[in-house]
Design a protein around this nucleic acid. Structure first.
Lengths: 161, 161
DNA sequence: CTATTTGCAAATAATTTGCAGTGCG
DNA sequence: CGCACTGCAAATTATTTGCAAATAG
């Protein structure tokens, strides 16, 4: 399972263009770090990227990896999965439900939907494995933040001041 | 926005029953901690639960809150959102896509689906706010873990030995 | 009674930051 | 050449763990 070389190149060009547009320096380490994520299908974490890059460039430091990855995210060149909020959140609602997550304040609310419950995704993911449950996350702006001129800052948007 | 008293009671009964079945002691702090999550619509984190419970029971400690919440999760009485993997994962795929996440090894893979992209969830979430994007997470078992008798342990399933 | 559970304090793991030297534009 | 960028080490934040005292069953 490999990403076509051309796609990696396209992503790297995107990075170079965005960096230039943002007047951000194109250092050797930034290129290597971004290339590592761009060439992967596996959503690596910072530590994994660090180890791979370090093999080719023994002097990089983990903190530069973090700085570069957040930079690339700020430039809109990559997204994150996993921790979207600072800490684990707990949910006592046992019925099958989905989430509406506010991009402004991070608040998550449950909602139920027969239509979403009955989605058939087996075909779409059969190349990877067997699906046992489907969960839909709707992102948007909650009524509260919509009203407030300045959305209540929380969760995201606090990294890299 | 409040949860009907009867639903909170039902959840608490579920907790008591499950605890008894698991021969786990029903302490005052466990009840209070679980009640706090059961009565909330807002998916609190451990710190938030801790502060609320502490107001009524000034001696609880944050680590008991954590222990109790993970216990309730083990008993199947609550689920978690947010960090499902140990660390943040990065994704350089800029096209609109969804994820297949393996419950065995934590590996996440991208997939695209016109059908999922065109889901109309606006009505389902209008009570909460305005939707801007929809992301589907399909959970299941990847071909690799399916084959392996003992799935490669990772991500989840490492908490509470 | 006695095995669990608790609170405390100290330990980890992931991620961030201050600072002085280094290199891109 | 100057200021953004790097590497290092130390700081922070969320969460976990060892242990002696407290308590449910």
């Amino acid at each position: 399972m490999k990403l076509p070389r051309s796609e990696v190149a396209r992503r790297l060009e995107g990075f170079e263009a965005a960096a230039r547009a943002a007047r951000v320096k194109l250092t050797h380490q930034r290129l290597e770090i971004f290339r590592e994520v761009a060439a992967s299908l596996e959503h690596p974490d910072a530590e994994t990227v660090f180890r791979s890059v370090k093999a080719r460039m023994p002097t990089v430091s983990l903190d530069t990896v973090y700085r570069t990855l957040w930079l690339a995210k700020d430039l809109g060149l990559l997204s994150t999965l996993g921790p979207r909020h600072e800490s684990v959140r707990f949910d006592a609602n046992l019925s099958h439900h989905h989430h509406f997550v506010c991009l402004g304040c991070g608040q998550a609310r449950d909602f139920e939907s027969e239509e979403l419950d009955s989605l058939d995704v087996h075909e779409a993911v059969e190349m990877y494995g067997r699906a046992t449950a489907t969960h839909v996350e709707v992102r948007g702006i909650c009524n509260n933040c919509e009203k407030a001129a300045a959305p209540n800052p929380r969760s995201e948007a606090r990294r890299r001041p």
